[in-house]
Amino acid sequence: MSDQNANSGCEPLTLESELSEIARIPPWIERLAALNAVPERTRFAMDLCLEEAVSNVIRHGYAGEPNHALTVRCEMHRDGFITLVVEDDALPFNPLLVREPPVPASLSDVSVGGQGIHLMKQFADAVEYERKPAGNRLILRFFYPGTSPGLPTVPPS
């Protein structure tokens, strides 16, 4: 990565492939947000997208099997955006290829499946997918105004 990037102050989060592990995401995001003065709306969006991305990997990528791992890491960028990277060792799965759920005409038409990916695309400013040699990498980008005061500044010339 370029020198535009800086450490978020948060260690990468390694999760087991169990849904109960998702409870570890909100405190990690809270800490990340507090350390880097992330606005509330962006914090909410990161929280939402990570819950959806991670539950997707656990339920679909690993098909609910325990004893697999996935990691989440964060990069702060000096030009005011945050990147969350979710990596797993699961079978290839590109969530960006999942069809959008149809707009429901009535409650009985509501398909809740697919909403997670839809919400992720709506709440992240950009979502990218990369196939790893063995596994998947999902990159979620969030833009917010201003540069975090927690980031290093360019020394005066």
């Binding site: 909100p26 959806e52 809740v112 909403q115 997670g116 919400l119």
Partner: peptide, 9 residues
């Protein structure tokens, strides 16, 4: 304070 897709369901 938070709503995700499982909450929607």
């Amino acid at each position: 304070t938070f709503l995700g897709s499982m909450g929607l369901r």
